[in-house]
Nucleic acid binder design. Structure first.
Length: 317
DNA sequence: ATCCAGGTTCAGG
DNA sequence: CCTGAACATGGA
């Protein structure tokens, strides 16, 4: 890879069967990419610091970061948390599930190397507010445009030249954004832009931020209520925020894909009808009866990814 | 051309 | 409590 002197290296052994590529591009994160100068490396900016990741083998990966050597231990700890290595993927699908759905289990098994990540709450809120009834390609484009316009520009010097990255915008940067300017980044959807600004203001005021701090202990229903107060956040997006941004692996978002596999794989009749709030809750209950309560969302994401790859034959993440 | 893509909200029966 | 429309764009 390109040699950048300001970067220091950390090696992490995950002790887990870990598919870095599938994890980063399974649709839970839209902020990772591969740049030309760093072939084989995935890069992103977290907390305005650049990180480059590459997998060495199925359990080991290396990280290049802008931190000093002394902070490598913290980096190691951070990524263990970020990729949720405390969660044992072998405990996600119960033995009952494995017995009741043998063919499905055979297909899903390899996809347990997809980790569900603990990402920044605010970033996840904005990201999934951009994810309404459009494809992932467009979601990714919106998120990068938002970062390029409102995030901090970060330049990395390499022998091959400068490389430009953008941090994710702070709540205050989006809170003070001009609606029609932000709409240029939200697929020209002015309602969405206005919703994001209002949410950012709520976050900045401390109301939403505080709810995130206590999100670990609070029950899911209360958490959803706090999130759904905001225009543009319904049940599904609230569940995505809980799952991907607040480490609530019990949250089970139901989108068009999940709805499809709930019918095709589990024969749940309600999954053929439209996703009204009432039906959404019924479907969640039935899904939890199959996948368990603790890690329903974690399992759901693995099924989601498996469905898109194996059944829908989607190439692009 | 038509339908679908990680939905939500609002009006009307 | 239900459906349909509006919001917007791009890929298959």
């Amino acid at each position: 890879m390109a040699d950048a002197k300001e970067l220091s290296k950390t090696i992490i052994k995950s002790h887990r069967n870990f598919d870095l590529h599938a994890t980063l591009f399974s649709g839970q994160s839209f902020r990772w990419s591969q740049k030309e100068n760093f072939s084989g490396y995935y890069s992103t900016v977290i907390d305005n610091k650049i990180f480059l990741l590459r997998s060495i083998d199925s359990t080991t990966f290396e990280i290049f970061s802008q931190s000093k050597e002394a902070f490598c231990l913290q980096i190691s700890d951070f990524f263990r948390w970020y990729f949720a290595f405390d969660i044992d993927e072998n405990s996600i699908f119960s033995s009952d599930f494995q017995r009741d759905y043998p063919e499905l289990w055979r297909m899903v098994k390899p996809y347990r190397s997809v980790r569900v990540m603990r990402q920044e709450p605010f970033e996840i809120m904005v990201t999934f507010m951009c994810a309404q009834g459009i494809g992932m390609h467009l979601i990714r484009r919106q998120v990068s445009m938002i970062a390029e316009r409102y995030g901090q520009k970060i330049v990395l010097e390499t022998p091959e030249g400068e490389m430009v990255f953008y941090g994710f915008p702070t709540p205050s940067a989006l809170a003070s954004a001009d609606p029609s300017e932000l709409a240029l980044c939200t697929n020209n959807n002015r309602i969405r832009a206005a919703n994001i600004i209002a949410m950012a203001r709520s976050f900045e005021s401390g109301k939403l931020a505080l709810a995130c701090v206590g999100s670990g202990e609070c029950d899911l229903e209360t958490l959803r209520e706090t999130l759904c107060v905001h225009s543009g956040i319904g049940l599904k997006i609230a569940d995505c925020i809980a799952l991907f941004g607040l480490g609530r692996f019990d949250a089970f978002p139901i989108d068009t894909h999940v709805k499809q596999y709930l019918w095709e794989w589990f024969g749940i009749e309600e999954a053929r009808r439209s996703l009204t709030e009432k039906n959404y809750r019924i479907l969640q209950e039935k899904a939890r009866a199959i996948l368990g309560t603790e890690c329903a969302g974690y399992a759901g994401h693995i099924l989601f990814h498996c469905w898109r790859k194996e059944v829908k034959k989607m190439k692009a993440f």
